[in-house]
Design a protein around this nucleic acid. Sequence first.
DNA 1: GCCAACGTTGGC
DNA 2: GCCAACGTTGGC
Length: 152
Amino acid sequence: MAYWLMKSEPDEMSIDDALAAPKHTVPWFGVRNYQARNFMRDGMRVGDGVLFYHSSCPQPGIAGIAEVASAAYPDDTQFDPASHYYDAKATREQPRWMMVDVKALRKTRLLPLAELRAVPELEDMALLQKGSRLSITPVTPAQWKKIQALLQ
DNA sequence: GCCAACGTTGGC
DNA sequence: GCCAACGTTGGC
């Protein structure tokens, strides 16, 4: 089992929104970065652990725990000209962008980015690397364990 | 709103 | 294949 951190802007979809969704499950549409797509398509398995991260907001940080709830499948918004996420170069025969379903398990206390940065055991987290902008990053088992402890 | 850092595009 | 220009991300 692998672990991941997935960023969401709470204005778009917060941990509360995800918990309020049917089956607490939401499609993770809108990823338009190849590395992040590849993590979903090639790396994720159903049941993988997910740190639900709030970004681009007054208090960025980890806001909840979730899990991967499906294999990767095409993100329909790429085919919709009216969508913000439309991609003219994508076709149904040759989709370019994939997504997974994510099931929210619980809301946690907000574990702020600044607090994560202050933990020596977490300094190698992909999230914390200089210039890192990826919306989906891997988390090691040791990092996952440390963060669970911080959330106790 | 600023800006550092990064990814993508497209001309050559 | 290089790389300049541009667009985006996301913390502050």
